[in-house]
Design a protein around this nucleic acid. Structure first.
Length: 256
DNA sequence: ATCGGGATTGCCT
DNA sequence: GGCAATCCCGATG
């Protein structure tokens, strides 16, 4: 790992920080202006290496209810509870970027230590965030979060690219999708290959014990957006908390 | 060097 | 529910 020193407004490889946004407002300005410094670090709750060392499907389920934290140097923290994930198994899983053991510079993080972040660009304008699991080329896609902290900052980060005059986003629309959560938590492409178990800008932790539906049932459903992959598109490798309003796509059949 | 498609989103009808 | 936006990356020649 090379020494990483990142400045907020212009981060190499951060597609959110290009021309279109420069004319509007830098992300540091957004953070500065909204100023919600909840400086609690809660290091004791942080999930370490051992949590990530489990098979893909197990990790996809275990991640539900955990809290993703994005911390800025000034102490600002953006937090969201994971409510929807997808398992991408590698090998036989034709829908996985690592299908057939295919390894490229793009998906290298899928083959790295469990807990390694895999961020990839999609459709030219969005990003998706995954977490490497145990298993060759296996990783879990984060699909939705329930926003818990730093909502004003999230709202600005999410609004930066939307049509002028649009209504402020509702809480449930801040992080209910894989690319939405990358925008809301300011996850840049440069986070690719970082270690979620040891990084100072992004990590996972246990939810507060008094948090809501910690015991909600887990629904297994088919994955989204991979229709072209035949039988693998139908497998029940998407997991979400039953009845949770922050899930991106509910499956009524699966919930019965 | 070129080409085609994509683990999505927001706006439109 | 349809569809354009938008560009990186992998495959191919």
């Amino acid at each position: 790992m090379a020494g990483r020193k990142r400045k907020l407004p212009v981060r190499k490889g951060d597609q959110n920080a290009n021309k279109s946004e420069l004319a509007v407002e830098s992300k540091q300005q957004i953070v500065d202006r909204s100023l919600t410094s909840s400086t609690t670090t809660n290091l004791c709750r942080r999930l370490g290496d051992d949590f990530f060392f489990q098979p893909c499907v197990s990790l996809a389920k275990a991640l539900l209810g955990k809290v993703l934290v994005r911390r800025y140097d000034d102490g600002t923290e953006l937090k969201g509870r994971v409510v929807e994930t997808e398992a991408y198994l590698g090998g036989e899983d034709q829908a996985s970027h690592s299908a057939g053991g295919k390894r490229t510079p793009r998906n290298a993080a899928m083959f790295m230590k469990p807990g390694t972040i895999y961020v990839y660009p999609i459709y030219g304008i969005y990003l998706c965030m995954n977490i490497s699991s145990q298993g060759e080329g296996a990783a879990v896609l984060l699909r939705s979060l329930e926003p818990l902290g730093g909502l004003p900052v999230m709202r600005r980060l999410r609004a930066a690219r939307r049509k002028d005059g649009a209504q402020p986003l509702k809480d449930k629309d801040l992080c209910n999708g894989p690319s939405k959560l990358c925008q809301a938590l300011d996850i840049p492409r440069a986070f690719d290959r970082l270690d979620l178990a040891s990084d100072s800008e992004v990590w996972l932790e246990d939810a507060d014990t008094d948090a809501g539906d910690a015991t909600a049932a887990v629904v297994a459903a088919s994955r989204i957006g991979i229709e072209s992959h035949g039988e693998w598109a139908k497998k029940l490798l998407r997991f979400y908390l039953r009845g949770n309003a922050f899930v991106s796509v509910r499956d009524k059949m699966a919930e019965r």
